[in-house]
């Protein structure tokens, strides 16, 4: 029986094929999947905020895009992934409520996505696919067996990226 490993908000975990890994109900948060296609090892982190250096209380590394990715890489290397093989897929970063234009909260989803991309770029990890932005929530499931990310949203067709 293959297992579906769950990742909560501000949480991270790793998984090896044939198991799969999921996070439920992504809103403005971003779900980041890193994947070693050779060893079929995947990791997922559900980050809430773009930048740990802007927040005083930053002990939970999985909460931030910058430290979350670092944490995930170290967790994956610990179970045998090869750093040079890693590629990424990301989803989330929606704007759930139509706040006014001058609201700081309005762009949090976008900022999470931007921070994620710039961290991946800085680490030289290639972003293979993304389903980000818009105004709806997403549940994502990643299958290390074939490297596909399944995206489910309310009232929308399932999507594979």
């Amino acid at each position: 029986m293959n297992e579906m490993i769950k990742v909560g908000m501000a949480d991270s975990n790793v998984c090896v094929s044939p198991n799969a890994i999921t996070t439920l109900g992504l809103g403005s948060c971003v779900g980041i999947v890193l994947y070693d296609p050779v060893r079929k090892i995947a990791g997922m982190v559900h980050v809430m905020l773009p930048d740990s250096t802007k927040i005083i209380n930053n002990s939970n590394k999985a909460k931030f895009a910058d430290t979350g990715i670092d944490l995930l890489i170290s967790q994956m290397l610990a179970i045998g992934a090869d750093r040079r093989n890693l590629v990424a897929k990301i989803a989330g970063g929606a704007q759930m409520f139509a706040f006014g234009a001058n609201s700081d909260m309005m762009r949090i989803g976008d900022r999470n996505v931007e921070a994620t991309k710039s961290k991946l770029k800085q680490l030289g990890i290639s972003l293979k696919a993304e389903d980000t932005g818009a105004n709806y929530g997403r549940t994502i499931e990643f299958y290390p067996d074939n490297g596909m990310l399944l995206i489910k949203s309310v009232g929308k067709e399932k999507k594979m990226i």
Binding site: L24, G25, L26, A94, M96, F97, M105, R138, T139
Partner: peptide, 9 residues
């Protein structure tokens, strides 16, 4: 929407 997505805000 999904409660998780709404609660993320």
């Amino acid at each position: 929407d999904m409660s998780g997505a709404i609660l993320s805000v």
